[in-house]
Design a protein around this nucleic acid. Structure first.
Length: 706
DNA sequence: GAGCCTCGAGTTCC
DNA sequence: CTCGAGGCTC
């Protein structure tokens, strides 16, 4: 690459020409990255362009273009596709990596269903296609929409593109009126190679692998491009449906085939874990000659009535599992081991590797988790990998766990580096690193005195699920902190007043124009109104994540109520303390972390300064008119069989009830599922009203909609 | 106290 | 995505 002339030696004409070039290059890169799922240039190159652009704009402020990359805050949102909410969520599957995991899976299911080992229990086993999931909705036999998985709850509408796929019929007959088919879009090896050959002949970029090619093709904004791409589709299940297709998994798949969908020929009904594993090995042997990528075999309980009884954990069905093939590996050298400091002070080692391609992606870093992981032992001192501890200079085999996170599997050849010494001090602030007895993680003890912790806390504060301030991401936080502009959350909200109009100061900065500065201030101002749960999450109190923050917000309702309770629970005693501990999902560790946080003077001062800038919105109190349980404290115990525990809790809360985990004199209703034990007895002795699960459902029936 | 299950925290590359 | 730890049930 030729070196660009120094900015100070350039003429206006040269600068203007280069600014135009950069604007075009970056716009093209944005499109490639955000809309085509395939970056054209590396992050480093992209950053270099951005910096060069900023330098030019600083030197020639009159030449700043209207379409300058510096005026774009954050990434352009991928546009052009509508959203579709999945009526039945598209969940991911749990994973099995060994035969033992599969046997365990079978055992768990038998235990859950009380089926003894000598009774038969059938499973389907089918290849797990490495493509993208797609949900097709037919109404009265006509394809009305197609949606990608998205986050499982909401996907993107790609109907026009789906219609160009030969395996997807536009009309079907003999199907239920409402009929949602689920399956996998993929590209065969042959078609993938032909496509890449054509791409390279045209001078277009090639795709890294068939999955990326399929993803990129399905998400074209112009469906005539998708039509030219040779995509294929295997159907494997149904989602929302007006009447069941069959009462077994295998029966459903066969019906899908009869209705005109492609179904995978290697799908097999198996009667035992042994037979499942045999089929897995069979498929593994054929893997190379199938003509399309698969990354494992999926097993499902065949009987749909049993599937319904098994139900779901928070994110995965209990009745299915994906048995993964061993991940692709690569060997490389450990060049350095760096220690990063997290927002809680956790010291996490990360290996810097000589870059190497694993499964189509260049990997340069791998997580090392903690001290024991580097040593190669688990918490009981048992070895976790071949080749022992990891040192700088070692030749190692790496893989991508879940095809995502790079990890070191094995030390293949010992280098000449010394045994890695885990630091006893924080690498940033020099405070002692403390590893509590029985814990895996060492933490910097510097707290608010540690610059790294302060920055990470701020990054957490502005993160997507906390304050989510547009234009103030991790990178900006770092820059602003280093320049001394912000050091705690309250500073963000005084930025504008401290800099007068602020715009002048910001404008002198690289990459900031009047517009972007004003946009940032607008974004900050928008967040002066913040829901209580987001505030609680954003504070970054240890052990308090998104979910617990919501629990607390729901329970206490508003900020004054919450804060008063925290202050009153001082010394872990008294009624406020007991109440806090009684909340379902809040235990002693979290309760202590919360109370201690609010009695730590520095933390308290930071919170006090912050809240003066905020309008804290109470968590939407559910409509409780007509609800028979509004304001009541409800406890669930035993095994709930009709609805999941999480669902029962969510329903109760939506009706204005407070869900508690333990029975006390303040409990209004105890809902006792099967095998209820001590809590039921206690409730009876206290004279608390107890209901069976069915009685509870009857009680709340009809009030959910009013 | 053991055995789930769920959540929090940390990480990589895109 | 994974690991570790907290919380709940038995």
């Amino acid at each position: 690459m030729k070196t660009k002339p120094d900015v100070s030696e350039m003429t206006e004409a040269q600068a203007s020409a280069e600014l135009e070039q950069i604007a075009q290059a970056m716009a093209a890169a944005d499109i490639a990255y955000h809309q085509n799922d395939a970056p054209e240039i590396s992050d480093a190159k992209y950053d270099a362009l951005k910096q060069r652009n900023a330098a030019l704009e600083t030197a020639f402020p009159d030449l700043v273009r209207d379409d300058s990359p510096s005026k774009k805050i954050g990434a352009a949102v991928r546009s052009g596709f509508g959203k579709i909410k999945h009526i039945v969520p598209m969940l991911s599957l749990g994973n099995a990596f060994s035969d033992a995991d599969v046997i365990e899976f079978d055992k768990r299911i038998r235990k859950f269903l009380s089926i003894s080992d000598d009774q038969p229990l059938a499973y389907t086993a089918e290849p797990k296609i490495d493509g993208l999931s797609l949900a097709l909705r037919y109404e009265n036999g006509v394809l009305v929409s197609a949606a990608t998985r998205g986050d499982g709850e909401t996907g993107e509408e790609v109907s026009q593109n789906a219609k160009t796929i030969a395996d997807i019929p536009h009309k079907i007959s003999g199907a239920p009126d409402i009929f949602e088919v689920r399956g996998e879009v993929y590209m065969s090896h042959k078609d993938f190679e032909a496509l890449n050959a054509a791409q390279s002949a045209k001078g277009d970029k090639e795709f890294a692998n068939p999955r990326n090619a399929a993803a990129g093709s399905l998400r074209q904004l112009d469906s005539s491009i998708t039509a030219k791409r040779p995509l294929a589709f295997f159907a494997y299940a149904w989602g929302d449906i007006s009447e069941p297709l069959a009462n077994t998994q295998m029966g459903s798949i066969k019906r899908l085939g009869k209705l005109g969908f492609s179904i995978n020929p290697l799908t097999k009904l198996c009667q035992s874990p042994d037979e499942i594993i045999e089929h897995y090995k069979n498929i593994e042997v054929q893997r190379a000659t199938l003509g399309y990528d698969i990354d494992g075999v999926v097993y499902k309980v065949n009987d749909l009535a049993l599937q319904a009884r098994l139900g779901f954990r928070s994110n995965t069905p209990r009745w299915a599992i994906a048995h993964k093939f061993p991940a692709e590996t690569a060997t490389t050298i450990v060049e350095a081991i760096e220690i990063q400091v997290g927002r809680t002070g956790a010291l996490s080692p990360v290996a810097h590797l000589a870059p190497v391609t694993v499964g189509g992606v260049v990997v340069a870093r791998a997580t090392l988790h903690n001290e024991d992981y580097i040593k190669g032992v688990d918490s009981n001192g048992q070895p976790i990998r071949k080749g022992g501890d990891i040192r700088v200079g070692d030749l190692v085999e790496i893989y991508r766990a879940g095809d995502v996170i790079p990890k070191i599997r094995e030390v293949i050849k010992r280098g000449d580096g010394p045994v890695f010494q885990f630091p006893e001090k924080c690498p940033i602030c020099g405070s002692d690193a403390i590893r509590e007895e029985g814990e895996a993680v060492a933490r910097c003890s510097g707290g608010f005195s540690c610059a790294a912790q302060r920055i990470e806390k701020l990054k957490h504060f502005v993160s997507r699920n906390a304050f989510d301030i547009d234009g103030l991401g991790a990178k900006q936080v770092e820059v602003f902190t280093q320049d001394g502009w912000i050091s705690e959350p309250a500073d963000i909200f005084t930025l504008q007043e401290r800099f007068g109009s602020g715009v002048q100061q910001l404008r002198n900065r690289e990459g900031w124009g009047d517009k972007s500065a004003q946009k940032l201030f607008d974004a900050i101002n928008e967040r002066r109104n913040i829901p209580l749960n987001r505030l609680l999450f954003g504070l970054g109190i240890r052990h308090v994540g998104e979910s617990s923050a919501m629990t607390l917000a729901r329970f206490y309702g508003d900020w004054p109520g919450f804060e008063t309770a925290m202050m009153a629970a001082q010394n872990h005693k008294g009624e406020a303390w007991e109440t806090l501990n009684s909340i379902d999902g809040i235990g002693t560790v979290m309760a202590a972390a919360l109370v201690d946080f609010f009695h730590e003077p520095r933390a308290k001062a930071i919170v006090d300064r912050l809240v003066t800038h905020l309008e804290i919105e109470p968590v939407a109190v559910p409509k409780t008119n007509g609800s028979p349980v509004a304001g009541k404290t409800v406890v669930f115990t035993g095994t709930l069989e009709l609805v999941s525990r999480a669902e029962a809790k969510a329903t109760a809360e939506s009706l204005g009830a407070k869900v508690s985990g333990s029975v006390s004199a303040k409990t209004d209703i105890l809902v006792a599922g099967a095998k209820a034990g001590s809590k039921l007895k206690k409730a009876q002795s206290l004279g608390v009203k107890t209901l069976t699960e069915q009685e509870w459902l009857d009680l709340i029936a009809g009030s959910s909609d009013s």
